[in-house]
Design a protein around this nucleic acid. Structure first.
Lengths: 219, 219
DNA sequence: GTCTATAATTAGATAGAC
DNA sequence: GTCTATCTAATTATAGAC
């Protein structure tokens, strides 16, 4: 659209993008209140008022950062649309394989982007406008999509005996807590849980545990 | 020991106790930085400087509150000492029953005292002196005690195929996330997860899932 | 767009009367 | 032991020069 100022636009988007990434790190590590806009700006060599220039307020920055990260999650979880198709048209075995794949993807994403679940936990411990917004806008679509699939897998005897309303928190907790608490996990276990080796062990363990009667993959 | 001032002592301990409980609620909901000493004092009808009088500083209050809550957990988990004995002397089936009981107790505690896991998560997302202290003093004893038991249960084919170093976070996450995030869970699921009915469903689901080959209880 | 300076709040901690 | 008043430090947001 705008032909001139291409260089300037690139720079503008660039600083915004870098501020978003820095914000995710700070918000994830310290929570909304604990994170300071000075520290976020400093991470990218900018000054604190630039945050109010590029975003209206600390809260606007938080919203933009969360939108940014959930968009990333949606890309990584593209298989979910696949799941939806499978739910209505295909056999339960294909659904089970796809669900197992979704678990693996989610574990990998939680390991690579702990900020998402860190932010969710920081916000979810007390009611706030941010929590209500995040829940309705980003969490509910995932919850509503996964729940009926789990019910079907349970009826087929493939899934572990966990109620479909509780499953969301069992899965999110079992998959993400070690990455959310990675600073503690490093102290406690002596391992680096985010290596591909450990992520794979973790993901396969969850798949086998949550889908104990997953058929052998044939194809 | 001290005979006079019995009344005064009772009052003093009383206000300290109430400040600790209020501190747990605030620290759990908002994290260390997000919680304000003014809000904690206000919860019990006290003034903010009383916190510095009864405890030296905000950090001292936090330490005292965390000690208080872990002492409570230890009481609720008394079965752990039982587990230790079972590990060396008794059969693996008795160990499995005791482990299942421990899972049930832990789920119940997490539901009744979400502050514990809320505080752990708030702190565990970034390194700090508070995190190192809490990990070594309170978390490691539990971790070190449970890990060998889980190994034995896995070798016996009773436990789900989850590595014993990862199990700690899988169990803590699967058991506590719904209570840590209860404000979100209420919005999302429409259920009140802390009722005894749902806590029981949750606990039995985890026992069946994590110990899929638990023998039928005979005695 | 970026920088410095600063306004307006709010926090934890302390002093001193009672 | 408790209360009011206040100190000091840190925060987000804004104003204005460049």
């Amino acid at each position: 659209m705008k032909q001139p100022k291409a260089r300037a636009r690139r720079t503008r988007e660039d600083i915004r993008e870098r501020l978003l990434e820095a914000a995710l790190l700070e918000f994830g590590a310290k929570g909304f209140q604990g994170a300071s806009t000075r520290a976020i700006a400093k991470r990218v060599g900018a000054h604190q008022p630039q945050i109010n220039y590029h975003f209206d307020s600390k809260e606007s920055l938080w919203i933009a950062a969360v939108d940014h990260l959930f968009a990333h999650l949606t890309r990584a979880m593209q298989g979910l649309e696949l799941l939806q198709k499978l739910d209505t048209s295909s056999g339960v075995n294909e659904l089970a394989f796809a669900f197992a794949d979704m678990i693996r993807r989610f574990v990998r994403f939680a390991a690579e982007h702990p900020q998402l679940n860190q932010i969710m936990v920081h916000e979810a411990t007390s009611e706030s406008g941010r929590l209500a917004w995040m829940t309705e806008r980003h969490v509910r679509p995932l919850y509503d999509r996964v729940r009926p699939l789990w019910r079907r897998l349970r009826k087929a005897g493939i899934a572990a005996p966990i109620d479909d309303r509780l499953l969301h928190y069992v899965l999110v907790g079992a998959a993400s807590t070690i990455y959310v608490n990675a600073p503690e996990a490093r102290l406690l276990t002596g391992i680096e849980p985010t290596t591909t080796r450990w992520v794979k062990i973790h993901a396969e363990g969850l798949v086998s545990t949550l889908l104990p009667n997953l058929p052998r993959e044939t194809k």
